[in-house]
């Protein structure tokens, strides 16, 4: 461990505080904005008398779509996360354990790489056309499908690293002990992969919750999710800064909660196998 003394220590503190501020300051600014009346927002006052008006308007206002946005986001996030976990876990197990020919794994890796290098907006156009033909445009189901597709590669890779870290002997012991292959998976392997499921689930949910570009293109007013809803506060003739800030603050709550409780699983998942 590096030990700092005297001036070095102060420089160290300054750097730490500086970088923390760089991350936290914008967030604090929005937090402040969310408690200001429009007049205080436009003067940029640092001292103001706080008001809950923005929150009340966003959550309970007659013309506010925000509660519906939250409901949509929850449905899309929850359903796509559950489905991506089911599909992703089973495919990851298959790729990690069953004796697939080498090209199968490589093809999958190639596809994942390609998929992650291509900007999402490139695919959104074709999706828009497809989904319109299929009748999935402007439905939550359509957005759920899109989010599953986007989240699947990451989920499969994450779960693969978890499965690879579970010794094969455990599965063999289970099979000798009387398990069918399916029982061995559900009774022995899956319980051990729970931290992985939590990590992958949190990442998938948070992604879906925050995802903007696809949601903007595949939804309209009734099916808009939270990020799309927030963007709607900036209209052509009026920008509702206060309401926008309040909605932004509210939108961070689920992600914050999830990360707070699930952080150790996520860190474990992303660094798994890095150090034996």
């Amino acid at each position: 461990m590096l030990t700092l003394n005297g001036r070095e220590l102060w420089i160290g503190y300054a750097l730490v505080i500086g970088s923390a501020l760089a991350i936290v300051a914008p967030f604090l600014w929005i937090l402040m904005t969310s408690f200001k009346f429009p007049i205080a927002i436009s003067t940029g006052a640092l001292w103001f008398s706080p008001t809950g008006f923005n929150y009340a308007d966003v959550l309970f206002g007659a013309r506010s779509d925000f509660p519906r946005n939250v409901a949509n986001s929850l449905v899309v996030g929850a359903v796509s996360t559950i489905l991506v976990l089911v599909i992703g876990t089973l495919s990851a197990y298959s790729l990690a354990r069953l004796r697939w020919a080498r090209w199968v794994g490589r093809l999958f890796l190639g596809w994942t790489m390609l998929f992650n290098t291509v900007p999402v907006l490139t695919i959104v156009g074709p999706w828009y056309l497809f989904f319109q033909q299929l009748g999935l445009y402007n439905t939550l189901a359509g957005l759920i499908v899109a989010h599953i597709i986007i989240n699947l590669p990451m989920t499969v890779w994450l779960m693969m690293t978890f499965f690879r870290d579970i010794p094969v002997e455990l599965e063999e012991a289970a099979r000798v002990d009387g398990c069918t292959p399916a029982q061995a998976f559900f009774k022995v392997i899956l319980p051990l992969a729970v931290p992985g499921l939590i990590a992958a689930g949190i990442l998938a949910f948070v992604f879906s919750w925050n995802e903007f570009a696809v949601a903007l293109n595949l939804t309209s007013r009734m099916t808009a999710t939270v990020p799309v809803g927030i963007a709607q506060f900036a209209q052509q003739y009026e920008i509702q800064n206060g309401q926008m800030a309040a909605a932004s603050i509210i939108s961070t709550i689920p992600a914050l909660l999830l990360m707070f409780f699930g952080q150790r699983f996520v860190v474990q998942g992303l660094t798994m196998g890095a150090v034996k």
């Binding site: 010794p167 002997e169 455990l170 063999e172 012991a173 289970a174 099979r175 000798v176 002990d177 009387g178 398990c179 069918t180 022995v188 319980p191 051990l192």
Partner: peptide
């Protein structure tokens, strides 16, 4: 299948189920 052969195996790594107690391991 292994489960149909009526055999028991002791592995080099022991392969105990980490999420089960000793009792559950033995009773599995």
């Amino acid at each position: 299948e292994p489960r149909e052969r009526d055999i028991a195996m002791v592995f080099q790594s022991y392969a105990l189920y980490p999420h089960m107690s000793v009792r559950e391991n033995m009773a599995f």
